[in-house]
């Protein structure tokens, strides 16, 4: 699981049929400097990822997202998703 800061969201006009009603967040992955100051303004230079979201993440939230095949596990019908929002962070204790 990687941590990331939500910096935007994506609305799809045309999509695969299995992705109906999906909610997508644009997330900037966080490195150690960012996770140490989670409310800080700077973003890491990692390429940002688009994450499937069912928890209602908003811009500015810090989330933990799972990547790879494990991101398809929460769905009973298989969906072509490779990044899933697993948790929204309340507090970072470092």
């Amino acid at each position: 699981m990687r941590f990331g800061k939500v910096i935007g969201h994506v609305v799809l006009s045309t999509r695969c049929s299995s992705l109906e009603g999906g909610r997508w967040l644009v997330v900037s992955p966080m490195m150690k400097e960012q996770i140490a100051a989670p409310d800080g303004p700077d973003l890491s230079d990692e390429p940002s990822a688009v994450v499937y979201d069912e928890l209602g993440g908003r811009v500015g939230d810090v989330i933990g997202f799972t990547e790879g095949g494990e991101a398809t596990w929460p769905f009973d019908k298989p969906k072509p998703v490779d990044a899933y929002n697993a948790l929204i962070v309340d507090r970072v204790n470092i």
């Binding site: 941590f3 929204i88 962070v89």
Partner: peptide
């Protein structure tokens, strides 16, 4: 391990999980 994280919301399967921040 450099810290841990408290969850505001999460997937129901992760509710009991203790999530550590590891470098």
């Amino acid at each position: 391990v450099i810290g841990n994280v408290t969850k505001a919301a999460c997937h129901p399967g992760l509710e009991t999980a203790r999530v550590l921040i590891c470098e």
